[in-house]
Design a protein around this nucleic acid. Structure first.
Lengths: 205, 205
DNA sequence: CCATTGTTTGAATTCCGACTCAAAGAAACC
DNA sequence: GGTTTCTTTGAGTCGGAATTCAAACAATGG
């Protein structure tokens, strides 16, 4: 059996472990997460995992941080890739990036899984709150721009409406990842869209 | 140490165990649930717990069932205790019973805790879906009655609006039990209320 | 009251996974 | 080349929790 010694740098290894842990969590779930799973997913021994993360919670927190940043970046990208001169299209893009498409959407699944820790771990709670706040900020901008130059007629403050949109996504998303057979992702998507149309006054969303 | 033998009936014992398990789960969380915790909470030995529930998951599922039924009953009660001739008051009562008041509201806390299993356990998924459907049904009725005789002007079908209200509750509730410091329960409550006002056209909700 | 049957207990056992650690390999530095 | 230092490994240890089980006990029925 190979025994590698002193490879490149630590950060790369850590990154690999975080990524492996993310896959393991998405696959087996937080409750069933075992050091061995992470080690296997990363292709290293159990000892190595402990070498870099003597405290497993630190690793899980890192996974959470990565998932939040990645998800946020992907939504931001979706927003910015839509034409800047078409606020409705931009909002539509945002709305489209906020719901799990299938019952086992990997990105959303991982996030909901990690959010489970928020109730008992301040670190995770903070990450979850930060994600919420930044999503709200994204929507707020999108709505304000739309009101300024996209013909949106906001039914309330952009802030309040943004909160509502994110909460809706989270609520519907929760049921989708929880395998609610009566609530198809398409239906949820359409319900959110209808709501967005109503509060912006743009029937063409 | 006492050694009781052949007491009354089984159903009573099972009920006591379910209740004890519920308390244990609410207190320590699902991940940290130990047979000993349940036994202690029920004031019996570990052996007794296994005697009635050789499969621990069955017990947890029973806890979930009880939590769902109890929660639903309490919302139904809230609805029915409001004056039948005042649809707005009834809707208000419903809206008021759907959000955790504090970050550690016991009823909501237990439900969100149990919902964590839905992603991987069909039984829990079914319970969660059933809760969602029945909450939607409650709101649908409240909205339809309001439209028929309470001066509500519904912005969409009662069904769709009901879905939205429940999803909003679930979304905001998720963040509240997850200890989002930036989202105070009162604020969430007010946001939901504002939304309800908008979609019913009743500014006095 | 004796036998039977359903219940309860807690000590013993088993199981599983986290954690330790000595040995060994690989780069870096001299 | 030798030495030092960082990494990696996996077998072994440890501990906590699930599970088993024989013994004790209480109600019920005869």
């Amino acid at each position: 059996m190979r025994k590698a010694g002193r490879p490149r740098n630590q950060t790369a290894r850590r990154q690999a472990l975080v990524s492996a842990a993310g896959r393991a969590i998405a696959e087996r779930g937080l409750e069933a997460l075992r050091i061995k799973d992470i080690a296997d997913a990363a292709g290293v021994s159990q000892g190595s995992v402990l070498y870099y993360y003597p405290e497993l919670n630190d690793l899980v927190l890192e996974v959470h941080r990565g998932a939040v940043e990645g998800y946020l970046a992907s939504r931001q990208r979706a927003y910015e890739e839509a034409p800047a001169d078409d606020p409705a299209a931009r909002l539509r893009a945002l709305l489209h990036s906020g719901l799990p498409t299938m019952t086992d959407d990997p990105a959303h699944g991982l996030l909901y899984e990690l959010h489970r820790r928020a109730g008992r771990s301040p670190g995770h709670a903070e990450l979850m709150a930060s994600l919420f706040a930044r999503e709200v900020a994204l929507y707020t901008t999108a709505l304000e721009v739309g009101a300024a130059s996209g013909g949106f007629t906001l039914a309330a403050s952009a802030q309040d409406l943004a909160h509502g949109l994110v909460a809706l996504e989270d609520g519907y998303g929760l049921h989708i990842v929880s395998r609610n057979a009566a609530l198809h992702p398409d239906r949820a998507q359409e319900l959110i869209l209808a709501h967005a149309r109503a509060v912006t006054g743009r029937a063409d969303l």
